[in-house]
Write a protein that binds this DNA or RNA. Structure first.
Length: 458
RNA sequence: GUGGGUAUAGCUCAGCUGGUUAGAGCACCAGAUUGUGGUUCUGGGGGUCGUCGGUUCAAAUCCGAUUACCCACCCCA
């Protein structure tokens, strides 16, 4: 049998994993520093938890798990006869793979509402699965990295999440632009233009601005049943005003939305977020962007998106506030706000820009090579000392030919090799070789340790 | 869900309108070099040409079906 991989899935080899772990480590550290607590939920959920949460499209993309045992005996016989897959599904599958991290999180919050201290802040880094057709940068199994707060409508959290984005991308060494808008402001715009019945259509169209340009958006809105004049008004309103700062832009919008209560509320929220954010030190820019819409989503307040400054890649993360996340599970009026990091894209960009450090945590640091039986035993003892001193190290399983062992060390990409023969064993002065420069010198075990630890810090 | 592409060595791919024994680069193994990898040179191993069927004296090559993967759109991360 020929080994193969299901479509849209990937193996992550050792070199890739070291890099992924480095990135996830930065995220984990940042989440924890900002007071978010870790959470993991099962790979599979009851189908009843998942269906109906992602729209009709989403339901089609759910991976369903076939029931165990004689599932056909318990199947809906009439649906089976009629070859009606949709009707048959609930009777042969009661579980599915998680589609995102937000819905399982909402389920968790509702189930544990009496034990949790609100506001509850959690982060979650786990794989999710979607039965989408794969394409470039899109997989059926991929990781999401989310941080959410539920149980408070304080706008402090919006500013905090912007700060979290800033902190993470600063640590990674990737300059970004953090954009913020408010769905209420967009709703106000729809009110002013008289198209509240086409609000979702409007946001979906606006979302495509950077892809299709103003003409494309105009066309899209008209196709979706928005009158041409109203569409033109929407476009002129969100068009960038040259040489104007955030303050001036917000003032401008205040005038535009003076007849819309919702719109003004959105503006006031944005002002408050900027007030909080202004009291923090940020390395990246937080800018108001009225063209940010975030499509069909369930967001109801502030929304975010992050883009790399000098790379034309899609967004590296996004998020926002949703007023009634847990309502679907019967817990009303719990406001939440959260963000997500597009780890796969961030990874690709880091690779492209060479942002991964050369010495990654977890990488083997030293490889021991022994040349005869006696020195092999000696090396084995030495190895235990090195490991207990905190050096990630290894030894070839037998005193094979030096060439063979060197070749192995090279394949492992280990930065340094320690060669031990009878002479070295007697004197305690080992041959320490740097694999990239090829330089080699004799040194005692203390020197070896000093060399490795000084390297680690630098 | 709609449309397109590809399938030949472990990997990336050549192989013209059908015609001897199916090739290259990388990788692998051995030697040049009995205490030095990565670089260089020499040699070597490795393929039912995705699967099934059809056309033909003859199919990796033409035709059909099928399976798998990839790419684009929709949507999304």
């Amino acid at each position: 049998m020929k080994p193969s991989l299901p479509k849209g899935t990937r193996d992550f080899g050792p070199q890739q994993m070291l890099r992924r772990n480095y990135l996830f480590g930065i995220l984990r550290g940042a989440f924890e520093r900002y007071g978010f607590q870790p959470l993991e939920t099962p790979a599979m959920e009851n189908l009843s938890t998942l269906t109906g949460k992602y729209g009709e499209e989403g339901d089609k993309l759910l991976f369903k798990i076939l029931n165990n045992g004689d599932y056909l005996a318990k199947a809906d016989q009439s649906a089976l006869q009629a070859l009606d897959s949709r009707k048959l599904t609930p009777s042969i599958s009661k579980r599915g793979l998680r589609y995102d991290l937000t819905v399982p999180f909402a389920r968790y919050v509702v189930m544990h509402r009496h034990e949790l201290a609100f506001p509850f802040k959690r982060y979650q880094i786990q794989a999710v699965w979607r039965a989408d057709r794969p394409q470039r940068g899109r997989y059926q199994e991929f990781y999401q990295c989310d941080a959410d707060v539920v149980g408070s409508d304080s706008l402090m959290y919006e500013a905090e999440l912007a700060g979290l984005y800033d902190y993470v991308f600063d640590q990674i060494g990737l300059p970004v632009q953090i954009r913020i808008n408010n769905r209420k402001l967009l709703y106000g715009l729809a009110e002013v233009c008289g198209i509240t019945d086409r609000f979702t259509e409007m946001t979906v169209a606006i979302d495509k601005l950077d892809k299709t340009g103003p003409e494309g958006v105009q066309k899209e809105m008209e196709q979706r049943g928005i009158p041409a004049e109203a569409a033109a008004k929407v476009l002129s309103s969100i068009a960038p005003v040259e040489n104007s700062d955030t303050e001036a832009q917000l003032a401008n919008w205040k005038q535009l939305l003076s007849q819309s209560e919702t719109g003004l509320k959105g503006l006031a929220e944005l002002e408050e977020v900027f007030d909080y954010a202004g009291r923090t030190q940020m390395s990246n820019e937080l800018i108001f962007d009225p063209t940010l819409a975030r499509g069909l989503s369930y967001y109801t307040g502030c929304i975010f998106e992050v883009n790399a400054i000098d790379a034309n890649m899609g967004s590296l993360g996004g998020g926002g506030r949703y007023d009634d996340l847990t309502g679907l599970f019967g817990l009303k009026d719990v406001s939440g706000v959260g963000i997500s990091f597009g780890a796969e894209r961030i990874y690709d960009l880091m690779e492209e820009k060479g942002l991964f450090p050369k010495n990654l945590p977890g990488q083997l640091q030293l490889f021991l090579i022994a040349l005869d039986e006696e020195s092999h035993k000696h090396a084995f003892e030495l190895l235990q000392h090195l490991r207990h001193s905190g050096v990630a190290s290894d030894l070839y399983p037998e005193p094979a030919k030096l060439k063979k062992q060197m070749k192995y060390a090279n394949a492992l990409k280990v930065p340094k090799v320690l060669i031990i023969g009878s002479e070295e064993m007697k004197t305690g002065m080992y041959a320490l070789k740097d694999m990239s420069s090829g330089e080699q010198r004799k040194c005692g075990i203390i020197d070896v340790l000093m060399e490795l630890f000084s390297k680690k810090e630098g």
